[in-house]
Design a protein around this nucleic acid. Structure first.
Lengths: 148, 148
DNA sequence: ACGACTGTTTGATGACAGCCACACACACGG
DNA sequence: CCGTGTGTGTGGCTGTCATCAAACAGTCGT
């Protein structure tokens, strides 16, 4: 009913927060972690967990509702829509490819070697799967700060 | 003096255009492709090549100037600042890691297998290096559209 | 009926990007 | 020597949108 989620917001990325949230919910549905009927965190709960304004979560949920992924019920909570369509395999690969391309462009401009890039990707993938094994909180708080 | 650049703007990403341009210039300097004294595309030229408003390029160049990477000269053009400091190795790795983490988070939420992810990254890296061999235009026009 | 959850709405603020008129630098032809 | 043309960057104004803050309204258990 309420699978463990692990939402990650990157303030420095410039991507609107509500959009980052939207994408990640969609990916969770696409990957099957979130299924139709599942209750998702309340607006205030998610806002508090991620340290953003409730209105921002409202925007994300509202857009997700328009897109058919989410149903909000006044006084009750928010849920994955009954007819939420998972992304097609092609769409999922597109999403992955977009992020990969972004990485590739940066790496190329930085003159990074292919093995080096692959290494870092492996590390990050590994870090995430370990995380999931240990994590018990229903919604994981995650904001990237890091310095340039 | 004017190395071939390959700037890539992704409209759908939500990242401010001027910020995407900034990052990529910084990465080019960090990677050594752009060196102090090099002339970079004029505001209008870059704006036309990328299909964005000149004002947006102005913002990118102005911010890069504040950061010490660029010098604008009225009537002459824009240049890489004499004392433009390349990013430290640690900073470069941070930048790479940020993009990798983004990719890892998405992949995990989509339930993608590690080998699959690595494959796609390899493909994208390959696509870029081929590009560079063929490309002759001083500034490559690149805007991502792709549909969701 | 109260209290503690839930979602809803409105207004203010600031960032982003577009349009348009202006000012400086230099090369060319009178 | 001067004017004109074409390149360059500069600056003001406007529309749109993301975010925040605070007040409003429905649901449910006691």
């Amino acid at each position: 009913m309420a699978p463990k989620l692990h939402l990650q917001i990157d303030d420095r990325s410039g991507v609107p927060v509500y959009r980052q949230m939207m994408d990640q919910f969609i990916y969770y549905v696409a990957g099957g972690t979130l299924r139709p009927g599942d209750q998702i965190p309340s607006i205030r709960e998610l806002a508090a967990a991620l340290g953003v304004n409730p209105t921002t979560v409202v925007k994300a949920y509202t857009e997700l509702e328009r897109a058919g992924f989410v149903e909000k019920r006044h006084g009750k909570g928010a849920f994955i829509a009954a007819n939420a369509q998972a992304l097609t395999t092609a769409e999922q690969e597109d999403a992955l490819r977009r992020a990969a391309k972004q990485l590739a462009v940066e790496a190329t401009q930085l003159h990074m070697s292919t093995p080096k890039v692959i290494d870092v990707v492996r590390e990050e993938l590994g870090a995430l799967s370990n995380d999931r094994a240990t994590d018990e909180a229903p919604v994981k708080f995650a904001v990237m700060n890091g310095g340039r």
